[in-house]
Amino acid sequence: MRTLTLFCLALLTMVSCSDKKSHPYTFYYWKTRLTLNTDEKEALNQATAPYLYARFFDVDQAGGRIQPVGVITKDRSFATDKKLVPVVFITNRTFLHISRDEISLLAKNINHLVQAKTSEYHLNTAPEIQIDCDWTAGTRDDYFTFLKELKQLSGKTITCTLRLHQVKDKKQAGIPPVQKVYLMCYSTSSPLESSDKNSILDVNTLKNYLADIDQYPVGNIDVALPIYSWGIVTNHLKKHRLINGLSQKDLNNRHFKKISENEAEIEQDGFYFGSYLSKGFRIKVEEISDEQLRDVVRFLNKKIHGFTIVYYQLDHQFIKGQNFSI
């Protein structure tokens, strides 16, 4: 009887340990120049997935022209053993009123520019291109046609990001013609609206949007999680704007009056965080805790199996003190 009890305890321990197995993880890189400082190199070296998802450029439509914006450059010192997955962000308006010929030309130009930058900087890239676009019901058909065209032209695996509303409203948003999507588990609301919720990630809101994610008809799903933070500045007219990279410690200023743990009112006009802010302006800091991330992963473990985590984003101001193995 004692032997059986010990065997059962050992089995329970083994099951418990397997349940706690960490997901492979890596990062998005979203700067316009490929360069890594010491902290970023260390964090990337410790990442357990073999890729780095690097934004190569954006594509936007302005003045009737579709063109690349913020094309990536590379510092001589940049080096990593990770394979780079080129990521291209395309604005939704790029696909408004686009013709069939323009879709083909867009796919051709994007493929050419990705190849050109890869060759110019001698980058070790994966056979994948990820497209990031917040498509809508009105642009979905043209966007999906573009994804097919890019796959045919490039000969590579074409993947895309998947936002929360595109999951919840999948009948209207449609299902992208790809074999793999990256579920963006952030931006649960707009930071420019007055709300008590954390606009980067409100876990209850996310769970509501993703209640049926286990029924999403794309079999391969990886998960993007936020590690960034910002401050939302509200002026006297209740207008909002963002200052990236702020954390709660930035509110410890003798010219600020703390309202709560994550909010303060400015008591003296001046330059703060690179901006001129007036007396009476308020700053609300939004950042993400380890427990919020663990809560999301626990929820998704019941819905999606064997996913890799891609943290947004690799930047020294967001990676210090983080526990990425969850």
Rank of each mutant, 00 (worst) to 15 (best):
K207H: 14
K239N: 06
P226F: 08
L183D: 03
A173H: 02
V181H: 02
G174Y: 06
A224Y: 12
I213E: 12
R241A: 09
V218Y: 11
S195H: 11
V233L: 08
G231H: 06
S187G: 00
A173F: 12
H240T: 06
S195C: 12
N235R: 03
Q215H: 14
P191G: 04
Y186F: 05
T188H: 01
S195N: 14
N204Q: 14
H240S: 12
V218E: 07
E193I: 14
C185I: 05
V218L: 09
V218N: 01
L183R: 03
R241F: 15
R241E: 02
P177C: 00
D214H: 08
G174P: 14
L183V: 02
A173T: 05
Q172N: 11
N204D: 15
K168H: 10
L192Q: 02
D169C: 00
D222S: 07
P191A: 10
P217N: 03
E193G: 00
R241V: 05
I200C: 11
S190N: 08
N204P: 09
K207Y: 12
Y228T: 03
Q179Y: 10
N204H: 13
A211Q: 13
Y209K: 10
V233F: 09
Q215Y: 11
Q215M: 12
P177Q: 01
K180V: 01
L237V: 04
N198A: 08
L201R: 12
Q172R: 05
Y182S: 07
S190P: 01
D202Y: 04
S195D: 14
Y182T: 00
K180F: 05
I221H: 07
T159M: 08
I227F: 06
I243W: 06
K170W: 14
V233P: 00
P176T: 00
K197L: 15
S229R: 05
H236I: 15
V167P: 05
I221T: 07
Q166R: 00
A211M: 09
S195Q: 14
H236R: 11
M184L: 06
G231C: 07
C185G: 02
I175G: 03
L162C: 03
I227R: 01
